[in-house]
Design a protein around this nucleic acid. Structure first.
Length: 500
RNA sequence: GCCCUGAUAGUGUAGCCAGGUCAAUCAUCAUGGGCUUUCGCCCCGUGGACCCGGGUUCGAAUCCCGGUCAGGGCACCA
């Protein structure tokens, strides 16, 4: 369904993404271009949603394209992880392909450039090339050596030269103001088995070369991506011009981050290694797997994306923006349960037996109720217990009122105090002795001002009402007066990841 | 060092190209109240911002110049 139709039924004003430049109905083709070298995170979801949004808005096509031309980076499991991630985001695509399947095409184009003297082989070391770029000076390999470059190409394929001994460079302009244009490398040797291509190739194209041609080959009409690639636009356009290919429209935005929650593998991997976080789906991270396990729903990420829009500033979102949207969206879907931490025993004298029928959701009575019978004792939350003073009348929510007689270390002794709702000063949730043990995990930001936050994960033990047994892992619930959470495991003990 | 972007409430964002209707939008947040057998949701109200300095103009968030700060690029990563 198109995004605008999808939102039409809600009364609430929803922010939409702006119209796409030069977009004609049924002519828009966009892409999801992940490198399968890690797990998808919120940045991928953000970019993916934008590409999906415009493809659907204009009834065009969306292509899932795995950018897997560096065999050393990519792994099979990540291809699947990305597909699962996009599916979770409800981003569907019309075609799926791998850039590595187009190697024969890149080879053909590369040979053509060598023949046309538009490219050459260079045996300078990486640091020499780098220095030449900085200084704007050409190296000796740049001079025209006729068709010898084509012969070198064949030699490399035959196994001559080792990795890092030689690269293929485009002959552009060593004095170009944009340093990307100073004879960029377009092919290099990587002797490493590719998960799908095996060892049949050792000359692999660089990002710019593969991307420039691939975008054309896929019929991409609009390249929508983050602006870390901005300075490569010129080069990619140049490469397409070399083959007289049409230029797609490019729209870029700034890379998107959430305060205190890094996305880079460089920063996260050591934290996993040291055991500080449990893995790539640790609830403090912003991988899609982590967000799911924290109780964030895809629509919240989509709405957040629309709010941020195609900004070219440097958005560093506070968690509150995502969490606030999520809370609103999750409220109607999350059934309510009672649970207490630091359980405090409440003994009720002259209690009348009472069977409470508690609705699973206050706004949707059709979801039914569970029944709990109060006998002569219940457990309440330690925090509530601390607040109670002798003489206080409070209500066991959906039960009846009780009055505090005296507090001891062992228990709070109360007496039945009627049914009048108005007489109770406050209402609290409670559980009885058939309740089951639970662990709540409260996530916080991983870094505060660049420093690792040692208390970024708080675990609290407690007990939850028996009915929570029936809730399947993966369900988002609300623990009344505690917040929303995600049932992460439901065995002997129920584990709940609190959303905030 | 060089090149390219950007800067609007605590956070994000609209407005800037085509100067006035901007006493600056919306979301999130904070706060007061209402509703509610939750400290959730919902409803009503309130609070908070145009990076700095010059210039052009009757008039500048918007145009020009100069700073400052931030991000990206100058990879045999993408």
């Amino acid at each position: 369904m198109a995004p605008d139709l999808l939102e039409a039924s809600k009364e609430r004003r929803v922010k939409e993404l702006p119209a796409l430049q030069d977009a004609k109905m049924r002519k828009v083709v966009t892409r999801l271009p992940p490198e399968p070298s890690g797990y998808p995170h919120i940045g991928h979801a953000y970019a993916g949603y934008i590409n999906w949004y415009y493809a659907r808005k204009y009834r065009g096509r969306l292509i899932l394209r795995f950018e897997d031309t560096n065999p050393r980076n990519v792994q099979k499991e990540y291809y699947e992880a990305f597909k699962k991630g996009y599916q979770w985001m409800e981003i569907d695509w019309d075609e799926e392909l791998k850039v590595s399947d187009d190697m024969p095409y890149f080879y053909e184009k590369a040979r053509e450039l060598l023949e046309r003297q538009e490219a050459y082989f260079c045996t300078c070391q990486a640091d020499v090339i780098k220095e030449g770029r900085r200084a704007g000076t050409p190296c000796p390999h740049r001079q025209d050596i006729g068709d010898k470059n084509v012969a070198i190409w064949d030699k490399i394929i035959d196994g001559k030269y080792k990795e890092r001994e030689i690269v293929c460079r485009l002959r552009v302009d060593m004095n170009h103001p944009n340093a990307v244009m100073r004879d960029p490398n377009i092919f290099r040797i990587i002797d490493y088995p590719h998960p799908f291509q095996g060892t049949q190739y050792r000359l692999w194209p660089t990002y710019d070369f593969a991307n420039a041609l691939e975008d054309h080959r896929n019929g991409i009409s609009h390249i929508l991506r983050s602006n870390e690639f901005a300075s490569r636009d010129e080069l990619q356009a140049y490469i397409r011009d070399l083959f007289q290919l049409p230029q797609p429209l490019i729209q870029e935005w700034s890379r998107f981050t959430i305060e205190g929650s890094p996305v880079s593998k460089r920063k996260i991997r050591p934290l996993i290694k040291s055991g500080f976080i449990s893995g790539w789906n640790d609830i403090r991270l912003t991988t899609l797997a982590a967000l799911r396990r924290r109780g964030i729903i895809p629509e919240a990420i989509r709405e957040m994306t629309r709010e941020v829009g195609l900004s070219v500033a440097q958005p560093v979102l506070d968690w509150s923006v995502l969490l606030g949207i999520n809370r609103r969206l999750v409220d109607p879907i999350a059934n309510r349960y009672y649970a207490v931490t630091q359980p405090s025993l409440v003994e009720i004298s002259n209690a009348k037996p009472h069977t409470a029928k508690i609705p699973f959701h206050p706004d949707f009575k059709d979801r039914g109720t569970r029944t709990i019978t109060i006998k002569d004792s219940v457990y309440i939350d330690g925090q509530d217990a601390n607040r109670l003073k002798n003489g206080d009348i409070f209500r066991l929510k959906h039960g009846y009122n009780i009055q505090v007689q005296r507090k001891t270390k062992k228990a709070i002794y109360c007496s039945y105090a009627g049914d009048d709702l108005d007489q109770a000063e406050f209402r609290i949730q409670w559980v009885i002795d058939d309740s089951i043990p639970m662990e709540l995990r409260y996530p916080d930001v991983l870094f505060i001002k660049g420093e690792l936050n040692s208390s970024s994960l708080r675990k609290v033990e407690g007990i939850a009402e028996h009915a929570i047994r029936e809730v399947k892992p993966g369900t988002i619930i609300q623990l009344e007066r505690k917040g929303f959470g995600f049932i992460d495991g439901n065995g002997e003990k129920v584990n709940i990841n609190m959303t905030e």
